[in-house]
Design a binder for these strands. Sequence first.
DNA 1: ATAAGTTACAACCAAATGGTTGTAGATATG
DNA 2: CATATCTACAACCATTTGGTTGTAACTTAT
Lengths: 117, 117
Amino acid sequence: MPVKNEFEEEQIDLLFHALSDRTRRDIMGKVSEGEQSISDLARQYEMSFAAIQKHVSVLEKASLITKRVEGRQKLVSNNPETLRRATELLADYERIWTHRIDAIGRILDEEQERKEQ
Amino acid sequence: MPVKNEFEEEQIDLLFHALSDRTRRDIMGKVSEGEQSISDLARQYEMSFAAIQKHVSVLEKASLITKRVEGRQKLVSNNPETLRRATELLADYERIWTHRIDAIGRILDEEQERKEQ
DNA sequence: ATAAGTTACAACCAAATGGTTGTAGATATG
DNA sequence: CATATCTACAACCATTTGGTTGTAACTTAT
C-alpha cells in the first residue's frame, strides 16, 4: 500500500483521469458557482450536447460531481468531499514520494530555517 | 484563468494524466527511495522494458521525474518541486471549486483591501 | 394533443494510450 | 576484439478516449 487512504486504486485512476482534461476542469469551475443543467453547460462550449454529457459522466464516475433530478433536467453540482479527499491524497503522495516526514516535522524544519537566516 | 498558478493548462493535462496510471504512481514511489535505472525499474514489473520506458517518458514529460546519465544507464529520480506545485495546484482548485475561504486567503484579501484604500 | 426542451444512449470515427517485438547504438566487461 | 548490458525508437496491435450524428423517452408548455 503506497498511501494509506480511503481511495481504491481504481478510484484514484478515475480521479486523476477526470482532472486531466481542460473541458472537465472548466466544468468543475462552472458548476462551483451554482447548479447547472447539462444543457446549460453544453450551451457554454463549442461542442455537442453529447460530448458535454460524456464529460459530465466522466466527472460523475470519479465522484467529482453529482446529478440531481429536477423535472426534465438533471442539475449538476460538484462534490466537495471528493475534492477534499483528492487534495489530501495528493498531499499524502507528495509527503511519501519526497520523504517528507510529516506536516509537523516540516513546519519545525521551516521554523528552524527562518531562525537560521 | 480559473486558477492563478505558474502551470500552463497543457502542463496540467500532462500532470494529471501522468498520475492517472497505477504503474506510474508506483514508479514514483519506487524512485522516491533512491535513484533507479530504467532497467532496475523494469525488472520489478511484469511488463516489457519498453513499456516501463514509455511510462518513465510520460512521467518525464509531466516533469514529475528527471533522468541523469551515468555511464550506459539513465538514473531516474523524482522531482519534488513539481510534486509540490501539483499539490498546491489541487489545493487551489479545491479552494476555488468549493468556495472555501481559508485563513491565508482571507489574510491576502484583507491585505489587498488595505492597499486599495 | 402537439410541440419543444432535456436527457440517455447507440453507432460510428480518428487519435491517443498502453502494451508488444525487433533493431540499432552506446557503454562496460571478459 | 567480442560479448553482454542498457537505452532509444520504430512498427505494430487492441482498447480507450473524445468527439460526432441520430434516435428514443420523458417532461413541460401551448
